[in-house]
Amino acid sequence: MAEHDLPQRSTPRSYWALSVLPHLVLFGALMALWEGLSIINVIDSIMVPRPSEIVSAIWRLYVTERIIYPHFVVTFTEAVTGFAIGATIAVVLAVASSLSDVFQRYVSPYAIVLNVTPGIALTPIIIAWFGYGMGSKIALAAVICFFPIYVNALTGLLQTDEDREDLFRSLGGTKVQVFFKLRVPSSLPMVFAGMKIGLTTALIGAVVAEFAQATEGVGVLMGRFSFQLQMAASIATLLSMTAIGLLLFYAMEFLDNRIVFWGRENRMARVSRARAKAWQRIMHK
């Protein structure tokens, strides 16, 4: 019945062509300019490698020599594991802090100290504690991704609309119901925002720990290439880090879209269409 009010999906293909094509043209022009300047020696091609060299380095790393994959997997695992540990601790502490004022009062000074200390400063110490292997990278990733998630989750959990809470209470909602049906859902957008920041920081933690001391990982590979002045390979490795970052970011974005569907208009429309359909089926039976 309310189906007509819902916005329909519309993404005409010509629009895509029109909006993507100029970007590609500009990108191509920039690369051609760079390549040209490098060929006529305006740009020092040892320090700033040509785009064609970077492309061939990517080809070597990924297709012919295939040396990047194990490093890629190591860094990815470190970042994701560290993130999982840090995020779990952060969310548990945030929930406890939101439920108990006293708990929050006693935890927050330590959380603030942890926040104002550059977590990266702990790198050597964490390496001494957890060894040269993956453990130390995971630990550093967990330490530095903790705070943004904790703060965002706590802010989200504490910022509930009082009118809505009154509504819940006046309908006889229990404390548990208020928590799970009101506080948790309304905090989710903030939590996801924190998690997106946290994932990026976790990746930074893993990579920095690899720079400091490690035997494998994208950071190691990159340090090695730069010190051999293989700049093209080094940039190619850097681009793989970007790829890891984008992968993690879009995975989180995907989850965010799925779970917090009411925050996005098209997802909202889709879910409410599905629900309306299900509802109609029930009604017509």
Partner: peptide
């Protein structure tokens, strides 16, 4: 509009990771 894709890519890169490159350069 033209800068946006580059900004997204830069945002996903761990920027500190450029450190060895810069030191080499």
């Amino acid at each position: 509009r033209y800068l946006q894709p580059y900004v997204i890519v830069l945002e996903a890169t761990p920027r500190i990771a450029v450190a060895p490159l810069l030191i080499a350069a």
